[in-house]
């Protein structure tokens, strides 16, 4: 018996005010696999991630999570198997990094061991007593990733969505986070989808890449096959000599 893929969309459409943001998109992502979303600004990467996270209903088409339509999940049951890391507003009040990470499961008592474990995986244990509002953007990202790890625990077949996680990272931090995502996908059998502007990120760790233009897939498959000069040129509508 084979498990259904963690994430599956079929002919997904998102239309807002007559603008088609996502255009009949079908994709499938199994546990242990990493998908990279690429495309120009406004191509629909964030919209797609938000739709996959269940933040709003698709106009038509279906999204299935572990074989079940996204709509059958409640907010709370969805939070157990799906995490989203996107841009967050600055904190209003100071909050210790420990408390910040334990908000990953807001309705249960903080599990100190698990919180520290999640921080350790993100090499962020040293900040456990720091005020999260005082962290640099790279440090904060690692703490946010730890929060998602704490949120999902060790549940296999979870879906982890990340909207441009590398946007503010220096080279070393970027390398660290890339390796972390790859390792989590492999060891926990999670399906991970992240968006990025950097094709190298996809080539480094992704099993699949999806090139988006105006909400539609230009190419979808192995990163080496998707991220060619011709397809990048077509996607960004500019002559690009990116890969050699």
């Amino acid at each position: 018996m084979s498990l259904p893929p963690v994430l599956e969309t079929h002919a997904l459409n998102v239309v807002r005010n007559t603008t088609r943001l996502i255009d009949s998109l079908s994709l499938s992502l199994s546990g242990g696999r990493v998908l990279a979303l690429l495309g120009a600004n406004g191509a629909g990467k964030s919209t797609l991630l938000a739709a996959l996270a269940g933040e709003f209903a698709a106009t038509s088409g279906s999204i299935r999570l572990n074989g079940k339509p996204l709509e059958v999940y409640t907010h709370e049951s969805l939070a157990e198997i799906r995490a989203l890391n996107a841009v967050e507003p600055p904190l209003t009040f100071s909050l210790s990094v420990f408390d910040f990470v334990s908000l990953g499961r807001p309705f249960s008592e903080p599990q100190s061991e698990s919180v520290r474990g999640a921080l350790a995986e993100c090499h962020a244990t040293q900040w456990v007593n720091r005020d999260a509002a005082s962290l640099s953007s790279g440090e904060l990202l690692r703490v946010q990733l730890a929060r998602s790890l704490y949120q999902l625990g060790n549940a296999p077949n979870s879906l982890w969505l990340l909207d441009e996680p590398f946007a503010h990272l220096d080279l070393a931090q970027r390398d660290f986070v890339l390796k972390l995502l790859r390792q989590i996908a492999t060891t926990r059998r999670w399906a991970i989808a992240f968006s990025t502007h950097e094709p190298r990120d996809a080539i480094a760790i992704a099993d699949e890449a999806l090139l988006l233009r105006r909400g539609a897939a230009i190419a979808y498959g192995a990163p080496s096959a998707v991220l060619t000069n011709e397809q990048l040129t077509q996607c960004f509508e500019t002559q690009l000599e990116y890969t050699s």
């Binding site: 933040e55 907010h75 939070a79 995490a83 989203l84 904190l91 908000l103 807001p106 949120q151």
Partner: peptide
């Protein structure tokens, strides 16, 4: 507890299960 999660912003709070 829901109010606590709101510290992370409305969007994140929602994905963490807050209605």
């Amino acid at each position: 507890r829901s109010l606590g999660a709101l510290a992370l912003g409305e969007r994140t709070a929602k994905t963490l299960g807050v209605s």
